[in-house]
Amino acid sequence: MAKNTSGRGQRDLRVKVKTARGRKLSSTLWLERQLNDPYVRRAKADGYRGRAAYKILELDDKFRFLVPGARVVDLGCAPGGWCQVAVKRVNALGEKKGKAVGTVLGVDLREIEPVAGAQTYALDFMEDDADAQVKEWLGGGADVVMSDMAAASSGHKQTDHLRIVALCEAAAYFAFDVLSEGGTFVAKVLAGGAEGELQKLLKQRFTKVVNVKPPASRSDSSEKFVVATGFRG
């Protein structure tokens, strides 16, 4: 049997991707990062639709808002990884005997591949009657509104920051309309200085507002998550 004479174990091996004709360097670097990302490998092994599933898992491990029986709305739910996590945690499939059965409702601008245990709809949550439609589907108010949405990148850091803060503010106003008293709002933002008004807005409506960067968020990313608990109604 051939011996490993490199002096390195398997865990130190890194996949290198060569730049192919017609492929930009940025695309090559992205592909290389994906292939070497432990969360990407874990997602495949665990059956999640993307590494982002671990962000909501880690946030819920810390704040415990996805409890059995909870009614959850996932805004911009594609590709469905957050819905997959929520289904398990709120017991939407009734697999945890003796525990309350929750509801998971995902909305996105486009239809997504069905998620077992979740209801998914093509809906623009910014439409005037979207909140009423969601409450009708839920059969009442929501306990959790969560969002991993990000506006399309323009390549300009400050512009992208402003866009995602605006998107998060829109999600917050939607949450105000559909959350039940005591509910939780979780959303992605980008650090950059323009989120102060959003923080002020949330602190007026919730008893506690914190900013968190879960371990699953890449260290070179400016993303963070705002977790607002105790909706005042």
Rank of each mutant, 00 (worst) to 15 (best):
D124Q: 12
G102Y: 08
A118E: 03
V144H: 01
T120R: 05
L138H: 06
D108Y: 09
M146I: 09
A116W: 00
T120Q: 04
K97C: 05
G117S: 08
G106Y: 06
A122P: 02
Q119L: 14
T120D: 02
K135E: 13
G139Q: 02
G141I: 00
T103R: 14
K99G: 08
T120V: 15
Q133C: 02
I112F: 09
L109R: 03
F125M: 14
G106T: 10
E127A: 15
E113A: 10
E113G: 04
L123D: 10
G98C: 14
M126W: 02
L123N: 07
K99H: 13
R110V: 12
L109H: 00
V144D: 06
G117D: 07
V145D: 03
I112S: 07
Y121F: 12
D129L: 02
G102L: 04
L123W: 08
V134N: 01
D124R: 14
M146N: 06
E113H: 10
W137D: 00
A118F: 04
A116T: 14
V104W: 10
G139Y: 07
L109V: 06
A116K: 15
R110N: 13
E136N: 12
D108S: 07
D129M: 11
M149P: 08
A100E: 15
A132L: 10
L105V: 11
T120W: 03
E111C: 00
W137V: 07
M146K: 04
I112G: 09
V134C: 04
G139H: 04
A118Q: 03
A130Y: 07
A122W: 02
L123E: 05
R110F: 09
G139C: 06
A100T: 00
G139D: 06
S147R: 05
Y121V: 15
V101R: 15
P114C: 04
K99Y: 13
M126F: 10
Y121P: 01
Y121A: 13
E136G: 07
D143R: 07
G106I: 03
V115F: 07
A132R: 11
A132D: 14
G117R: 03
G139E: 08
G140S: 04
